[in-house]
Design a protein around this nucleic acid. Structure first.
Lengths: 353, 353
DNA sequence: CTGAAAGCGCTTACAG
DNA sequence: CTGAAAGCGCTTACAG
């Protein structure tokens, strides 16, 4: 008891050993494998531990066992953006539910001191989930030299890049085709940007793949992608509003805007409403992701549904398999998407919205 | 090089020392305090490290330095509920932005194996933020014996319970008063429930404090809280819908439902719309939190705005102060709320919505 | 059933 | 400027 009050330091296994009269080995067993010591020893040790306020140090324990019991989610951008985006939130939720299932914690890793590389070097995790990753990026080599298992969502699949994706090219093709079928020809595209990896992205990055889908649909009706204005927006409501305003200043207002992101599309709608425009009467818009808000906003958004939670879950399950060495080969998962036609794209061919 | 290919194990500081011809001390300094060794030694060591693919083990480093560089957010309920609730998401965002600022990671801690106590015992973090905590709960004593700094949001402030809150009693009073001023007397209250701590909650828990506010407003117009039906809902859209349906089966439909949670209120609206009712024409509803969706749904929700992000930020800032020993006294922060009157409560006194 | 001892991979006084 | 050595608090073969 005296110890408790005098020193403001946690007791260690050594203290419990001394105080209970058993060895450190015995104390360790009392907590981890009671069957290896006598009932009497166990109860005496536990009692002493209780009395001295001893709780085994998780850090020392994990260090000794060479594990963290946590997986990391590398945020693709500043935390306020990442977590503000409902799509990313759903991915997070999916990852989290798997962590819960395995009794792991989920470590959110913000770009440290503006350096993702440093963040990954220092991450105290058993595996890492990233978004939009491609081979060739610095952090990939860090993960590899750390022998840290990783899976990427919405990245560029590759031999060395385990990944979970939808068929983005196909999905975008379908989305654009719907818009074109409704007679729209005067378009504007809002692409994805703003994440930490954008700079290093190559031709086969996610925005590029979606662009390919758009291009294909456009070419089928004789429109050249080159002639369509393209804006790049961060996946946030605020930046969506900004882009919406920017579009209002175009010399010629597009009849339909196609955004790669629902949250940005919603931002556009909000800003257009503020400017007195009515959607889809005055201008149409289509989104991507089918976040909950897409069916909440008026008009309900025409978009591509992709199961964000499922993406997170599958990525996490794959990662756990790698951590537990159940799989040695690289995983490449592709899951289905669905085109959701709602009310935000006006049918120019019939005259009705 | 040969080492690299033959052993599938990460090199340690010892390998770099041997390989570079310097001591482990020197290697450590090369990474942590290059000024303590010669330029030549440093560059040789770093080069060797690069060649062997050496990255200092974060776990060993943290263990040696007795720190985790991470703070924990103990999820108040199963992860899919916690992270599905936009209010909690905003709190998380606030906490996360502060972590980012300090170069810490944010560890989401789900109730482990259904035991929060175990989760807290094992959490590899330097401090903990919880929601709805009160003294007397098991995990409080765990945090104390671990000497783990903690702050609670929406908990019950106390000498030993650093906390961040709004004035919930006052806010609820104002909300209820608004409803009553509009002439509503046939009411239904939906309280908060479903979190992991609900069982142990005492009279001064958050739902109880809000109830006190309701009671006060009700008593001012001669209504006894006892006569108002009270439902308890988990903070999820799904459970909100369920409660909405349940209310439709009441013998007498209330004229207004007062929910302690926007997401539940929105769930009610959705289920009522599905049942062919129109809000607020057929039934009114008021919420709490002012989540983004509250101004998105039709009709816009009358609610209490509480700055969720700010709560998270303040709690995290307070926690970092405790971690860095800048403050030894218990913090008790109360931040302002705002009543937001919108369109979901019908004015029975004028006849107009 | 029990315990002495090595080991996990770092950091850091301390002595030279 | 440099390095041998102790220490962080556990786990776990190993020997008795």
């Amino acid at each position: 008891m005296a110890e408790q009050t005098t020193k403001r330091k946690r007791p260690t296994i050594k203290d419990i050993a001394r105080e209970s009269g058993y060895s450190k080995t015995a104390v360790s067993f009392a907590f981890n494998d009671p069957s290896r010591i006598s009932k009497k020893a166990c109860s005496q040790i536990l009692e002493t531990a209780e009395r001295l306020g001893y709780i085994p140090d998780p850090m020392a324990r994990n260090f000794s066992l060479r594990r963290h019991l946590s997986i990391g989610f590398l945020l693709p951008q500043e935390i306020r953006y990442s977590l503000q985006n409902p799509y990313a939130q759903q991915v997070l939720l999916g990852i989290g539910s798997v962590c819960e299932k395995y009794g792991y914690t989920l470590t959110l890793i913000p770009p440290l001191n503006e350096s993702v590389t440093e963040a990954v070097r220092n991450a105290a995790v058993d595996g890492l989930i990233t978004m939009g990753m491609q081979v060739g990026m610095d952090i990939v080599s860090v993960m590899k030299t750390r022998l840290l298992p990783y899976v990427t969502i919405d990245g560029t699949p590759n031999e060395e890049m385990p990944s979970v994706n939808i068929n983005d090219e196909m999905a975008s093709y379908e989305l654009m085709k719907t818009v074109l079928d409704f007679g729209h020809r005067n378009l504007c595209i809002i692409s994805l940007g703003g994440d930490i990896f954008a700079e290093k992205a190559t031709k086969m990055s996610l925005p590029q793949r979606r662009m390919e889908g758009f291009k294909k649909a456009l070419s089928e009706v004789g429109v050249d992608l080159q002639d369509v204005p393209v804006l790049v927006s961060e996946p946030s409501l605020a930046d969506g509003k900004l882009k919406g305003k920017e579009i209002l200043n175009f010399n010629e207002l597009p009849t339909c805007v196609v955004s790669m992101n629902d949250i940005v599309a919603i931002g556009c709608i909000v800003s257009w409403n503020e400017a007195g425009l009515s959607v889809p009467k005055d201008i149409s818009i289509a989104g991507f992701d089918n976040i909950d808000e897409a069916s909440c906003i008026m008009p309900h958004l025409t978009t591509v549904e992709q199961p964000a939670q499922e993406k997170g879950r599958l990525a996490a399950e794959a990662l756990f398999k790698m951590i537990h060495k159940e799989t040695l080969q690289s995983v490449h998962i592709q899951i289905p998407h669905t085109l959701i036609q709602r009310d935000s794209v006006k049918d120019l061919t019939s005259g009705q919205p």
